[in-house]
Amino acid sequence: MNIFRLAGDMTHLLSIIVLLLKMNATRSCRGVSLKTQELYAVVFVCRYLDLFTNFISLYNTVMKLIFLASTFTIIYWMRFHKVIRVTYDREQDTFRYQFLVLPCLVLAMVLNSEFTVMEVLWTFSIYLEAVAILPQLVLLQRTNNIDNLTGNYVFLLGSYRALYILNWIYRFMTEPNYRQYLVWISGIVQTIVYIDFFYYYIKSWRNNEKLSLPA
């Protein structure tokens, strides 16, 4: 565990806490993509199957459980909470799951380090995470006056990815046999997806304006 990895994990955790607090305080999920949240649920379920087979550390187990529980809480609120679900932008959140899930599944079957159910699902989760934010970014682009908390949520998620890249560089330099090309490439793709958003987020922050993304 290095400082970049810890900072990355904490940023990831903070992003989810920001989203939970926002939804709980405002009783609204306006601007939040249910599709992205459900894709993250698939990512976490497929990746964390090793909770049953492999103990890494208490930290690792607890964080996995928190990510699973918090994501399912968000989905539950957006689908079933009697006040929050009314505020969901159903008509705007139209990204098709299959455009992301199917290519990632095929890629995971072809490009993996071991052709076993666990490893293919794990690899699938790596590919899917790289693109799971896309429905959220599309929804943000369609939303005028993105509220601060939704903007901060996406900014924190992007920061978490950038910190993971620093973590990989650090591990590559300090651990002799540490290589994971599929994860690195997916992670770099995932971070690139955020660059456009980062540009407008920082611009709006510097100009003290409300964030809006050009269509």
Binding site: M1, R5, D9, H12, D50, N54, I56, S57, N60, M63, K64, F67, W122, I126, Y164, N167, E175, P176, N177, Y178, Q180, V183
Partner: peptide, 10 residues
């Protein structure tokens, strides 16, 4: 304690 692969990451 930690294995040298990405599987120890979250």
């Amino acid at each position: 304690e930690e294995e040298e692969s990405g599987h120890d990451e979250l």
